[in-house]
Computed example of a mutant assay.
Amino acid sequence: MRVIPGHTFEMGSDRFYPEERPARPASVSTFRIDATPVTNAMFARFVEVTGHVTEAERGEDGGPGSLLFAFHDAGAASWRFIDGLSWQTPHGHASRWNSIEQHPVVHVGHSDAQAYAAWAGKRLATEVEWEAAARGGLQGCDYAWGDTLTIDDRIPASIWEGDFPSSRTQGRELPFTTPVASHEPNGFGLFDMIGNVWEWTATKAPPFDAKPSCCGTERQIEAEGGVIKGGSHLCAPNWCRRYRPAARQIGTVPTSHIGFRCAADLS
């Protein structure tokens, strides 16, 4: 874990989407947060020890399974609910978590993230803590690394490069996630705060109208959910520019692009 010093920072943004407004001062006390999202290997150890059964495996929302965004057919990529899909088979029934051990665990719900955190003696970060950590000590910048999307003509995060959802520079094959710490850390030594997977926070909120979004699915529940932060591998410059610390969405069900990391009080 990395220690995030207590400080005041500019939270939110007036330059992108309504749900991020207004930009305003916010403060955090010193806390700790995981350097990376929880990986498949880490989550597998938790399940081995505790016997935890995830929301997707229990089938609390219309039968066991989860939402997978992929090129299912010859055309554009899209969301589909896949019966029986879970973290153990993250991108189809023929796939296995242990073939991508160092990728972020996905197809986990808010309660699964909370259960893991409690087992690890940690907790989920609040939205304010998460954004403070993601900014890496920078003040008022659009991105976790500064005010420009690219550095040396390269985007330093795992996002969708191409014309979402029709074409993808990285290819059509799953997985769309990448191993954690595939890019440089931010100023606080944290990896993947932007892109790769959205991350659950401890903060609850009612749904808000936020379009266009890479989180829009036909199975979204119009109810209070957990605030997710950081954007994912589905965020694209032509569609959903939520690969930024200020970006926020509401998560309600397990999907192939939501994971989490843990936080803890300083002690």
Rank of each mutant, 00 (worst) to 15 (best):
N40G: 09
V53S: 11
A74R: 01
A70R: 12
V38W: 03
V47I: 13
R58W: 08
V47Q: 12
D61C: 00
E48Y: 08
E57Q: 15
F43Y: 14
V53W: 10
F71V: 03
S66C: 07
L67Y: 05
T39L: 09
F71I: 09
G51D: 14
R80Y: 07
V49K: 13
S78L: 01
F69M: 10
G65C: 05
F43G: 08
G63W: 01
L67T: 12
F43E: 14
M42N: 08
W79P: 02
N40L: 10
G65D: 10
G59K: 12
E60Y: 05
H52M: 00
R80D: 01
D34V: 01
T39I: 09
A74N: 00
A44G: 15
F69I: 09
R58Y: 08
V49H: 11
A76W: 00
G59F: 13
F43S: 11
S78K: 07
G75I: 03
F43R: 11
D61W: 04
V47E: 03
T50R: 09
V47C: 13
G62S: 03
N40S: 05
G63Y: 00
T36D: 07
L67V: 08
H72D: 03
N40V: 06
G63M: 02
R45K: 13
A56P: 14
G63R: 02
V38C: 05
E48K: 15
A56H: 14
H52R: 01
T54C: 12
I33Y: 03
D61K: 00
R45N: 04
D34Q: 05
L67R: 05
G65N: 06
D73M: 01
G75R: 03
I33L: 06
W79E: 07
V47H: 04
A56T: 12
S78V: 02
I33H: 04
G51Q: 12
R45Q: 13
L68V: 14
R45T: 14
H52V: 05
G51V: 07
T39C: 04
G75T: 08
H72A: 07
M42P: 02
A44Q: 15
F69Y: 14
R80L: 13
S78E: 14
A77L: 11
P64A: 05
D73N: 04
E55Q: 11
G65E: 11
R58P: 04
V38D: 10
G51T: 13
F46N: 11
P37D: 03
V53N: 13
R80F: 02
E60N: 05
G75Q: 06
F46V: 08
S66N: 05
P64E: 03
H72K: 06
T54H: 15
V53R: 15
E55P: 04
P37V: 01
P37Y: 00
L68P: 11
A56E: 14
T36V: 03
G63T: 02
A74C: 00
E48M: 12
V38Y: 06
L67S: 06
T50I: 06
D61T: 02
F43V: 01
G62H: 04
F69D: 10
T54G: 14
T36M: 01
P37G: 00
A44V: 01
A76D: 10
E60K: 08
G59E: 15
